[in-house]
């Protein structure tokens, strides 16, 4: 039971970090990333493959963060000349390509066999019975770090610039701001966070295979951002802890509701995510917490 709760809490932290990444890219920057799971999967695999080749876990994680950041920036540049509509399909297309590549390039990723034996950070210096607790703390330390980092970025001049390019790219351009560079940076930072989330995923399961990565993560992240309030990191944090906890916790219900099997329950859960997403867009477009704005009249 305790281990179930701990595992659920880790998954909540991971999904919330993904939600925060999306909040930076879409909430703050107006850039719809519909391929979150691809960057996440990329991060998980880079981390896992290096880790199982003997690279120290933290170094493997750092490498995953760098790779996903760089790749994210590169992908955002594909749609430089276009509006956000296209970025959604470009990121989705990229994610599908990542999934295909990892599924079929067995020489590198072992394909559908998956990558077993991923070593968690501090595994050597922590007694095995404490491993889950230490990892839980590790995941939450990352969540806190990510949250504080994003809050700092948002309140810095760069955050204002990001919002300005979201609200009116033409005006920002006219004011001499390089919209392209801003977008690439936003995507890179968001990608780095997805690298964090992916690495945590690899460490958490200690075995990864392509079937673990699906659009469920997309759904959770969009849910967290829309419920939390676009642009509000605090809102996303709260939404992550209520909604994703509820959704993940509902795996329980399989034992309670006998006439629904596990697959049906999973489908029902995702159905509710989709319908909930739409309902919030319609009825509570600002989400739980309003976006942070400078109090001065500068806005």
């Amino acid at each position: 039971m305790i281990s179930y709760v701990a595992a659920t809490l880790v998954l909540v932290a991971i999904a919330t970090i993904a939600g925060l990444a999306l909040n930076l890219q879409w909430g703050l920057g107006g850039l719809v990333n519909f391929g979150l799971f691809g960057f996440y999967m990329l991060g998980a695999y880079v981390c896992a493959l290096l880790d199982t080749k003997g690279v120290p876990p933290l170094a493997a994680m750092a490498a995953a963060i760098v790779v996903t950041a760089a790749v994210s920036a590169a992908v955002s540049l594909i749609s430089v000349r276009l509006s956000e509509d296209y970025l959604a399909i470009v990121t989705l297309g990229f994610a599908e390509c990542v999934r295909l590549f990892i599924s079929y390039e067995e020489w590198l990723t072992r394909g559908t066999l998956g990558v077993p034996g991923i070593v968690r950070p501090f595994a050597g210096s922590v007694p095995p019975e404490w491993s889950d607790a230490v990892f839980l703390a590790f995941a939450y330390a990352w969540l806190a770090l990510v949250f504080l980092l994003l809050r700092k970025i948002t309140r810095a001049p760069f955050g204002r610039l990001v919002r300005a390019t979201r609200d009116d790219a033409t005006v920002a351009e006219a004011l001499g701001k390089n919209v392209l560079a801003v977008r690439a940076k936003v995507f890179a930072i968001g990608g780095a966070l997805l690298g964090v989330a992916g690495s945590l995923h690899a460490f958490h399961y200690s075995y990864i295979d392509p079937t673990q990565f699906s659009t469920t993560l997309n759904a959770y992240a969009f849910m967290a951002v829309i419920i939390g309030g676009r642009g509000s990191h605090l809102g996303v944090l709260i939404a992550g802890f209520t909604v994703i906890l509820l959704l993940e916790g509902s795996r329980f219900l399989a034992d309670v509701i006998p006439f629904l099997d596990g697959a049906q329950l999973a489908a029902l859960r995702l159905f509710l995510v989709g319908a909930g997403l739409v309902a919030i867009l319609i009825f509570k477009p600002d989400g739980l917490v309003r976006e942070y704005r400078l109090r001065s009249g500068a806005s």
Partner: peptide, 16 residues
Amino acid sequence: LVASIGVGIALENAVR
């Protein structure tokens, strides 16, 4: 667009 993403998720899982 985001609403249609929600609709898509809901429809696919209604089928499932």
